[in-house]
Design a protein around this nucleic acid. Sequence first.
DNA 1: CCGGCCTTTGTGACTAGGTCACCGACAGCG
DNA 2: CGCTGTCGGTGACCTAGTCACAAAGGCCGG
Lengths: 219, 219
Amino acid sequence: MTEWIDRFPGLSKLDAPIRDLLIERSKIISLPAGTVIFGPGKAPENLLLLLEGTVRVQQVAENGREIVLYRVQAGESCVLTTACLLAYEDYRAEGLAETAIQAVAIPRAVFEDLIACSSPFRHFVFTAYSKRITDLFVIIEEVAFKRVDLRLAQKLLELGRGTGHVQLTHQQLATELGSAREVISRQLHEFQRRGWVSASRGEVRLTDIPALDGFAKAA
Amino acid sequence: MTEWIDRFPGLSKLDAPIRDLLIERSKIISLPAGTVIFGPGKAPENLLLLLEGTVRVQQVAENGREIVLYRVQAGESCVLTTACLLAYEDYRAEGLAETAIQAVAIPRAVFEDLIACSSPFRHFVFTAYSKRITDLFVIIEEVAFKRVDLRLAQKLLELGRGTGHVQLTHQQLATELGSAREVISRQLHEFQRRGWVSASRGEVRLTDIPALDGFAKAA
DNA sequence: CCGGCCTTTGTGACTAGGTCACCGACAGCG
DNA sequence: CGCTGTCGGTGACCTAGTCACAAAGGCCGG
């Protein structure tokens, strides 16, 4: 077996015995797209290190509106769940497998042992924390203070990177930004009028990425 | 000296040697109101455990608008700064002494040792993390989805608990909610018209707390 | 006590964003 | 082909944020 551990730069500095312990006591799991990994009333039992696929973490408000908080990509960890994992408190957020995923599951006890024994592992965990928390700070700033047209442009560029198109419905885009479907429809219409995108059912093609990019970066 | 450590319920379970180590290697500091404890470009050097006073953590956006993220009260810790502390990454947020404060400062090295040695200490730290992170989730939900009149009513009740009045300017209240001063002025005017509050320069007196409370809890 | 000066608050006009109700357009499918 | 559920479009309306500027209220030196 190829060593999955090498896919996590932060773990490369682990001492050999720790490394072996981690490899031995964790197991690799696969989950189909759409699996709810954790959510209200469903605390995670393991710390997951993602090998393949992406996990979307989002929050559903009482009034039914939703917002995407962040995504965990291959090579990253669902580390915020460890706070939950250790404090036995459940989040209002849920984690969803956005694609089929493959991940390393580290049981709580092993996680605690590693935190205790290994300084590099602690560094790995706290670095991951730091990244997630700053992500949350950025979300707060954007939701509270930034215009949705700018945020939409940014998000389209982010999601369409590489492919040049985004296969999401207007409702799904609204969820990405914590906005409303009608607002997104109108903004997309405006982008289309300016020739930056072309929309069809369930898909937005980015037809003028430089222009979109310029707009996203302008005040 | 009275043992400050007993003021932190989460630390009461520390083993005696760990406890002594912590007491010996940390020091008690006092800072005047208004001190910037950490901020952009000013990473904290210690983990602070607050004995007296409150610390306000807020974020300033590029466009100058601000929002209060959370407060650290006596008996709590500035634990989110530890992510920063360990990952050497700086936040976009800043921590301000809202009153004169007295706190226990735990140097980074001691913090790392304690995390390594003591399971109760780890539990203390991760519980604190969990609380802060769920606070952030709540902020996101409120900013994104809740009406400002409801949020203002809630915040007035929260800030006026005990005293029945809130000594803040409209601008400061706007910062509490991440909103704009004019919006707060207008809402306060409406509350006043309904007889729930009475406003004067730099102060809002809550004159009908039950009514405010009912409003805050209603849809 | 007066007059400047800064801070705080009030206000109207306007723009942006969110809500509601409803409709039509487009699959997918029997 | 017509049924059905999802998706997108639209107008009316409401709430929130922005901008510009006016009016108080408090402070302080003279």
